[in-house]
Design a protein around this nucleic acid. Sequence first.
RNA 1: GGAGUGGUAGCUCAAUUUGGUUAGAGCAUCUCACUGUCACUGAGAAGGUUGCGGGUUCGAGCCCCGUCCAUUCCGCCA
Length: 584
Amino acid sequence: MKRVLVKKAPQYIGERVRLCGWASKIRDHGSLIFVDLRDWSGKLQVVIDSSNVKNIAKIGLEYVLEIEGVVKKRDGALVNKNVDLGDIEVAVESVTVLNESKTPPFPLDGEGDDIDENVRLRYRYIDIRRKRVRDLIARRHDLMMATRQWFSDNEFTEVQTPILTVSSPEGARDYLIPSRIYPGKFYALPQAPQQYKQLLMVGGVDRYFQIAPCFRDEDPRADRHSGDFYQVDVECSFLTQDEFFDTVEPYFGYVTEKVAGKKLKFKKFLRIPYSEVIDKYGTDKPDLRYDMTLVDITTECKESGVNIFKEVGAVKGILVDRKFSKNEIESLTKEMKLEGAKGMLWFIIEDGKLGGSMAKLFDEKIQKSILKNFEKAGYDVHDGQYIFAFGDEYTRACKLTGILRSKMGDLLNLKDPNVLAFAWIIDFPMFEWDEKRNKWDFGHNPFSMPKGGLDALMNESPDKIFAQQYDVACNGYELASGSVRNYHPKSFIEAFKICGYTEKETREKFGHMISAFEYGAPPHGGFAIGFDRFMMILFDEKNIKEVYAFPKSNAQELMTGAPREVSKEDLDILHIELKKEKKK
RNA sequence: GGAGUGGUAGCUCAAUUUGGUUAGAGCAUCUCACUGUCACUGAGAAGGUUGCGGGUUCGAGCCCCGUCCAUUCCGCCA
C-alpha cells in the first residue's frame, strides 16, 4: 500500500491508507489508545482499538510507527476544532513499531523558547521535529526558490564561485585551510564572493546573482551567525545607482508577499542620506515602521543655563505617548547608562508646560520652544506625554536617543510584525578619520566608487567625499549592503593612496583586480542581501540561529562538536605543528 | 579582550526578611487501572556531587574569592 502524508489523509476518507511517522502524543485508555502521529506534513490522531488490533506492541513517545487503517470523519463532539485535521482520524488496523526511541530530552510541543538553547542544539535532530523549526526549514526553502525564480526571471544568471580561495587583506578574519599539495600555503574561505563577482562583470556576465555561503571568523550577535552564513550576492553592469535600485527593489516586495504573506509599508523604498538617518533615528538601520523621530533641543538646553549641558555637542530627544512611573524612569535611566549615557533628561507635559525633576530649571519660554520643536517634527503633542533626551557629543547623543527610540517602539508595540519597512540608506562618507592610527580609513567598503570619481579623490578633502554606497535598512536591521564599484585602475589606486597605501602596496594586494580593470572593466555595482537575516525579518525571529537547520553556537556546532582536534597524522599530512597553548 | 545576566532533577522553575533539620513543584519517565481522549484522568514510584575549586561559619544552593560554561551587548564584522 502506498504511503500517504497525514496532510493528504482528508482525500482518503473511507479508504484504507498507510501512514508513517512519530508518536508525538499518546493518550492511553487501556484498551483504547489515541496516538497523535506526526510526519513532515503535520499531525493526525490515530485510534488503536484493542478489539480491532491484535498484538499491540508498546508504543512510547517518539517511537517510529507504520500504521494501516481507515480514514474516518469524526462526528459531533469528537471533532477537535483546535487542531488541524481535528475533524478526521484513522481507525487503526495494524501498527508496526519501525524503531523505538529513548525519552526525548525536552518537550517538542511548544515553541522551544523556554528551553536552554544549547540543549536544543545538542539534540538538533530531535528539535527539528518541533513545528516551529520544521516550518522555518520549509519557509527557507520557499525563500530560496522565490529568490532564484525572481532573479532568474529578471535576466540574472546564478554563478557559483570558489569556496577555496585566497585570504583577503581587508575586512573580517579569515578561515584558513592548509594546503596539502603546497606545504606552508593556505586557502581562505570567502568572506563574500566580492572579488569574483566583480571579475565576472569584467568577464561580461551582465547580471549575476548567487545564494552564496560566506565565512567570517568573528564573534556572533543575535542577528549575526558565527562562522558561516548566506548572502544573496548580486552584481550588475552598466547601471547607475538609481537604475540599480529600480532594478532590484521589486525583489523584496515579491518575496515579502509571496513567501511570508506580509505587507510593505512603502511601495517605493525611502531613500535617506546617512547623515539624515543618524540625525532623525540615531542609527543607520532605523526601524521605519513607526515615526518617533529624534528632535534637537540643543539650543534650549544650552539657553537654560543648566551646567551639565554647557559642554555637550547636542541634546536629542523623543516624545513618548505613554505614562511612566518614577520606577520605570529610574530603570530606563539605568539601562541607558549601561549603553553609555551619562544620564537621561526627562519631562512630563502638564497643562501645556513641562514637569519633571529638571523642569524648574527651564523657564517658560524655553519650555514652549522645546514643545514647538516636537510639534514641528510631526508629533501630536498633548498633556500626559513624556519627553526623554540625552546630551552628549553629537553622534553619541543621536545614537543613545536612537537606542531609547527602539526600546519605546517595543514598549508601545509599534513594531507591527506583519509589516516590512524598507529604505535605501545612501551617501555614506567614503573615508573616516582613524583616531588611533592617525590616518584616513575606508568608511565602509574600499571597492566603492566615490561620488565625483578620480577628480574628487585628487581635489577634495577626504571628509567631503561621499561614496556611491548604500544599505537596505528594514525593521531595524541592515538587510543588504552594496555599492557602485570603483572600476578605474587610477581611481582605485588613488582611493587606497588616501588611506596610506602606496601604488605598489595596492597592486600587491589587489593585483588581479587592478589588472582586470585594465582590460576593459565595465561600470558595475551591486549588493549582497543577508539571506538569514531576511529570514529573521520575514518570520519575526529574534535570533538568527533559529533560521538555520544546524546553527552554530559561538562558532561551535554542538551536535558534531566541530571544531575538534585532529590526529597528529592528519596534521603531518598538512605540514602543520601545533603551538602549545597554556589555557584550556 | 571588556561589561551585564545566568548555571539547582531529563525539561521549566522554586527554596521564605539576614545562612538553619531530610533541597520542593509542574511536565516528562516507570508501575497499576481505565473504550472517546486530544494539556486524558486516577493511584503509586523513581529521579539531585545545587557548573567546578577553595574560603568564612557550629552550619552554605544562599555569603566571599577564584575558575569554567552559556548568553546579550561593546570591541570586531571590507
